[in-house]
């Protein structure tokens, strides 16, 4: 409970970063990084599933409000929130997740986090970009966008993780 203010700050910071910084990065028309989903990724393990969906909804909706794409990020982020529990279950370490830990690099290492983030980021980006073009006729050019943007977003997310780490240590 006492963590809630920190998550609210997280939320605001990530949304602001996305809106003011990353929404303006569009490299070659193919790369649109979306790092705000980091918020969903690093929610505690014991977050109720329904809350994940609700949080996903509001997170996506906030991004949509500011990027003038109502519904697009919302649906993609809700989808991401829906997938998260299943992915966590699939890639769980043999001894399971310890209590008092978070799904971050700090607790489970870069390899685990990479596996976790790659799956979810690609899922989210694919959902988002296909919703955006809304047809399958440009399937492969959309796929290219998904892959390139995912790589960029992942890079940003990993870097962000190391920022967190340092912050925590202090």
């Amino acid at each position: 409970m006492k963590a809630i203010p920190r998550y609210i700050i997280n939320f605001v910071v990530l949304v602001a970063l996305q809106i003011f910084l990353f929404n303006n990065i569009q490299l070659g028309g193919y790369i649109n990084p979306y790092i705000y989903i980091l918020f969903i990724l690093i929610l505690p393990f014991n977050t109720p599933k329904w809350l994940l969906l609700v949080v996903g909804f509001f997170l996506g909706f906030s991004i949509d409000l500011f990027s003038n794409t109502i519904g697009m990020h919302t649906s993609a982020t809700v989808f991401l929130a829906f997938l998260r529990p299943f992915i966590l279950k699939i890639i769980a370490p043999r001894e399971g997740y310890e209590s008092e830990t978070f799904p971050t690099v700090k607790y489970y290492g870069i390899n685990w986090f990479l596996k976790y983030a790659v799956i979810l980021v690609i899922a989210h980006h694919a959902f988002l970009f296909y919703i955006e073009v809304f047809r399958f006729s440009d399937f492969f050019s959309t796929l290219l966008r998904v892959i390139l943007s995912s790589i960029f977003s992942l890079t940003m997310i990993i870097i962000g993780q190391y920022f967190y780490r340092k912050e925590k240590r202090r």
């Binding site: 599933k49 329904w50 969906l53 609700v54 996903g56 909804f57 996506g60 949509d64 794409t69 109502i70 519904g71 697009m72 919302t74 649906s75 809700v78 989808f79 929130a81 829906f82 529990p85 919703i131 809304f134």
Partner: peptide
């Protein structure tokens, strides 16, 4: 309930999407 809630919210998102974006 998780699946139902997901479907519910997703459908709602799609309604928002379709109603607010000219292209879609």
């Amino acid at each position: 309930h998780f699946l139902l809630l997901f479907i519910l919210i997703e459908v709602f998102s799609f309604i928002l999407l379709v109603n607010n974006n000219n292209y879609q």
